[in-house]
C-alpha cells in the first residue's frame, strides 16, 4: 500500500517534469529555427534570385518544384546530413567543418553558411569555435532530447520558408500562395528529414546542376537584392 502511495505521489510529478522538459526543448528548437531568430537568413536566396530574374522560376508551381529539388537532391539535403552528423555523440566538429568546407559548391554559399553560422552561434553558444551554419545548429541541438527527424525537419522547413520568402518578395506571388507552397512541401521535408537522420558521409551527394549554376551566376547578377 505504501509503495502504491509513493508511486501515486511521484509518477505524476516525474511524468509532469518529462513532459515539461520535452515541451521546453521543442520550444527552444522552434525558437532557434524560426524565421524570427535574428541570424539574417532572409538576406540569402541561394541562387533563387538568379532563377527568378531570368524567368525560370515564375510562379507558385515553379517555386515548389525548385524548392523540392533543393530538398531532395540539393544543398538542403546535404546540409541536413551534416547537421545530423554534428549531433551524433562524439562528433568531431573540427573534422566535420573541414569536410563541409570541401563540399561547398560556391563562393557565396561559403559566405552564407559562415555568416549564418556566426550569427547563430553568437545567439546560442558564443564561446564555441566558429562553425558553418548547419554544423552550428547540430552542435547547439546535440543535447536536445528530441527525435532526430524532428530537428532535421524543422531545419529543412526553415530553409524552405527562407526560399518561399525570397519568392514572395520578388514574384507576383501573395503570402497566401507562398504559405500554400510551404504546406505542400511538408511531405517532402518529412521524407528528406527521415532519410538524412539515417545518413552518413557516404550518403553525401547532390544533383542540382541548374540550382548550382544559379547560385554561381548570382555572383555576377547585375541588380541584386539578396546577398546570395
Amino acid at each position: 500500500m505504501a509503495m502504491a502511495a509513493r508511486w501515486d505521489m511521484t509518477t505524476p510529478r516525474t511524468g509532469f517534469r518529462m513532459v515539461r522538459d520535452a515541451i521546453a526543448a521543442r520550444l527552444r528548437l522552434v525558437q532557434i529555427l524560426s524565421p524570427a531568430f535574428p541570424i539574417g537568413a532572409f538576406a540569402h536566396s541561394q541562387g533563387l534570385e538568379t532563377a527568378i530574374a531570368d524567368g525560370r522560376v515564375a510562379d507558385a508551381g515553379d517555386l515548389q518544384d525548385w524548392i523540392a529539388a533543393v530538398l531532395t537532391h540539393g544543398s538542403a539535403r546535404t546540409d541536413a546530413i551534416f547537421l545530423s552528423m554534428a549531433r551524433r555523440p562524439g562528433a568531431d566538429l573540427a573534422a566535420l567543418a573541414d569536410l563541409f568546407d570541401a563540399w561547398l559548391p560556391s563562393a557565396e554559399r561559403a559566405i552564407e553558411t559562415a555568416e549564418l553560422g556566426r550569427a547563430f552561434q553568437s545567439l546560442t553558444r558564443p564561446k564555441d569555435p566558429a562553425l558553418p551554419y548547419p554544423l552550428a545548429v547540430g552542435a547547439a541541438t546535440q543535447d536536445m532530447d528530441l527525435p532526430e527527424e524532428e530537428v532535421l525537419a524543422l531545419f529543412l522547413q526553415a530553409v524552405a520558408a527562407q526560399l518561399v520568402s525570397v519568392a514572395v518578395r520578388f514574384l507576383p506571388l501573395g503570402q497566401t500562395e507562398g504559405q500554400r507552397v510551404l504546406a505542400a512541401l511538408a511531405p517532402v521535408i518529412a521524407e528528406t528529414a527521415q532519410a538524412a537522420a539515417a545518413a552518413g558521409e557516404a550518403d553525401l551527394w547532390s544533383f542540382t546542376p541548374g540550382a548550382d549554376l544559379a547560385a554561381m551566376a548570382h555572383e555576377t547578377l547585375e541588380t541584386r537584392i539578396f546577398r546570395t
Binding site: 532563377a51 518544384d65 525548385w66 529539388a69 537532391h73
Partner: peptide, 21 residues
C-alpha cells in the same frame, strides 16, 4: 569534394530548372 548521383528519379525531372533544365 563533390559527388553527383543521377538516377531515374533525376531523369524523370529532367526538365526542372534546378536539375538538368
Amino acid at each position: 569534394i563533390e559527388a553527383q548521383r543521377l538516377d531515374a528519379g533525376v531523369l524523370a525531372m529532367g526538365d526542372r530548372p534546378a536539375l538538368l533544365a
